[in-house]
Design a protein around this nucleic acid. Structure first.
Lengths: 195, 195
DNA sequence: GTCTATATAAAGATAGAC
DNA sequence: GTCTATCTTTATATAGAC
């Protein structure tokens, strides 16, 4: 049973985002009511509106924060060997995705529930991330250590392949994260025609 | 404006499925109302219930039909060369996905909106499809023409990579379907360590 | 900041006429 | 088979008390 009074602003805000992310990922944005989120947080529905102007803004905030965290976390060294950079990208993408499976899921499943203006902003952030991988492939091709028939398509294919890890991974399963990174790197290296 | 009377049973049934598939794919199952579907079909909301007992049954019917069509369409020749079989699988999966983008989208985006019993039935069909690819990889590894560090994971990675084509493909774009098949086959062949 | 209470709109589904 | 009309529930969001 929830409290009936009292301010806990410093923890309620993050809690709302955490519970909304979890519920949106499990049931979908449209299927989750503000009342459900409030119940999971332990407040009444009206209290949510002290933190977000509406439900749409809550979704957008989750997606934007996720994409900005992703872009901030990825650090590329453009002077390094392209194959080493690709390996770093593969391991980074998998680790980041497994650390934030709900955020990953939302950021490509709930794009359709954004308003057009909000969609454009998230799509732009996504484009910057794809460009980061594209640069690595470009440099690898120029250096002659990668061989792909179409760079843009290889970028999309690799990201789809790597992100798919969230579809089957379960904590405490057969493979640990290091091993999963090894396996995906092996697949990715082969896909880009590196030896 | 819709008609106000008259029976068109032979076309209304398929139309309901077509419009529901299209709307569910664009906005998500929970975000689409029965009234919206009815309006797209050109009937009143009440008329839908002559064709489906409820909204959940409509979703399940779409997903089950999609998966059964997929399984029926895939024909493997277990006596053929494993690499030829994998190439056929890659081209088949891409062609099928591009022919039915909404169905593909639904069948991995709306699983969470199925009742548990319905989810189990769709998951079982999906498992049969994954097993089809798994068999090809198994035979390729035994024959020594494929080299993957983990067969189960390679299966999931390949399907995720191929299905991703629906995320970026647009009719009339830069690449035609044949060329897209060529490119994905190149990527897949590399991923499984074939020369 | 959070509560209770509520305004308002829209949802899924059904009943009965044609 | 389809319509109109409606029952019932639930949704988002707001108002005002504490």
């Amino acid at each position: 049973m929830a409290r009936t009074q009292g301010s806990r602003a410093e923890i309620t805000g993050p809690l709302i985002r955490d519970e909304a992310r979890r519920l949106f990922a499990r049931q979908g944005y449209a299927a989750v009511s503000m009342r459900q989120i409030a119940a999971a947080v332990g407040v009444q529905a009206g209290a949510l509106y002290a933190y977000t102007p509406d439900k749409q803004a809550l979704l957008f905030d989750l997606l934007e924060t996720h994409m900005q965290d992703l872009l901030a976390a990825w650090q590329d060294d453009a002077t390094a060997d392209p194959l080493a950079r690709l390996e770093a990208f593969v391991r980074f993408h998998i680790a980041f995705s497994l650390d934030r499976p709900d955020g990953v899921f939302l950021s490509y499943m709930e794009l359709r529930n954004l308003t057009p203006a909000n969609y454009q902003r998230i799509a732009a952030l996504r484009g910057r991330y794809e460009a980061a991988l594209d640069r690595i492939l470009h440099d690898g091709i120029v250096a002659g250590v990668m061989h792909v028939p179409d760079r843009k398509l290889a970028t999309m294919a690799l990201i789809a392949m790597l992100t798919g890890v969230t579809n089957w991974y379960r904590e405490g399963g057969r493979l640990d994260r290091q091993r999963i990174g090894d396996i995906y790197w092996d697949l990715a290296r082969g896909a880009v025609g590196a030896d």
